[in-house]
Design a protein around this nucleic acid. Structure first.
Lengths: 164, 164
DNA sequence: CACTATACTGTTATAATATAACGTCCTGGG
DNA sequence: CCCAGGACGTTATATTATAACAGTATAGTG
């Protein structure tokens, strides 16, 4: 079995989160430059909001924040920015929550798997290529040509396991 | 690697679909009897509609059909029936589509994985315990206690692969 | 520098998905 | 029969997402 890597560990405890955000924004900046994409003020701000905590953010929560910024903002404002960030590989959508998280490994192509804590909502992103390949292979056995995978696991993170 | 089983194969071609539905309803009937659950007229009808084709059905499409039946029906009517069927293990929700499919193996406890054709929307359900276990195990390595998994794979089924 | 094509954003309206809250009715167990 | 709980009807509303079109900014070109 190939080793899995952890693209984004749980970060429920205290850590220098400003640093997380700064790093994510800097990586996004350079990823966009490399790909010739326009990392505008709005997109940057939306990404910053997605990264504001290590939990999935809802589109309308982001919208509320934008409005608090004093910016004229309506649903399309945030959905368009999110679509851009998704296409650019800078955020992931959590289908089972209708919410968005920052990508733990922008630039490095990967098929992420997500662990989501029911209690505190914290999310971790792992990259287990062996699992992704096994799924693709099983699908192939049925004549199915897989192109994308959604893998989301719910449960309790270690911190919440203790207190539960 | 453990062998995967196919709980519900693709059925895009012609087959005796009435038989599919009858079987599903009969299995549901007996599963409910075994568990002391009430398989009412409404719940039976909703399950029949979920099974009406081998593609995921949307809640509001089911609602439209119920209304066509002449029944007084509003969103809670269908969502309550779907919640019952989900709890009873008779249908699955496809998170990435906000839609519902009949369960291919009611009674047998399993963690399903879904293959969804982008072209024709057909769905297959497989049960690959090795994959489910590998995910649970990887999660455990991060101190995460997994309880549910959402695994949905999009791509092209064999029929659509040919014509694409 | 002006021009223009294109991408980005603002704005209004509306579609699609889902739940809250409360009342009535039905059904099974005492 | 009675009644307790579950199932269903009904109205209203919350949540999530997109369509359509107008105005603005920006990069590339001449």
């Amino acid at each position: 079995m190939l080793k899995k890597s952890v693209l984004m560990p749980f970060k429920t405890g205290s850590h220098n989160h400003d640093q997380c955000i700064d790093l994510a924004l800097a990586e996004a900046e350079s990823a966009c430059r490399r790909q010739g994409l326009r990392f505008t003020r709005l997109r940057r701000r939306v990404l910053e909001l997605v990264w504001s905590r290590h939990i999935p953010m809802k589109a309308y929560d982001i919208l509320d924040e934008l409005r608090r910024d004093g910016r004229g903002a309506a649903p399309p404002t945030v959905y368009r920015a999110l679509d851009f960030l998704l296409d650019a590989g800078l955020v992931h959508r959590i289908e089972s929550l209708n919410a968005y998280v920052g990508c733990g490994g922008p630039g490095k192509p990967h098929i992420g798997q997500f662990l989501i804590c029911r209690q505190c909502n914290a999310v971790a992103e792992i990259d287990a290529p062996a699992i992704a390949q096994a799924l693709t292979q099983d699908a192939k056995g049925l004549g199915f040509r897989a192109d994308t995978q959604t893998v989301e696991i719910k449960g309790l993170c270690s911190e919440c396991s203790v207190s539960a």
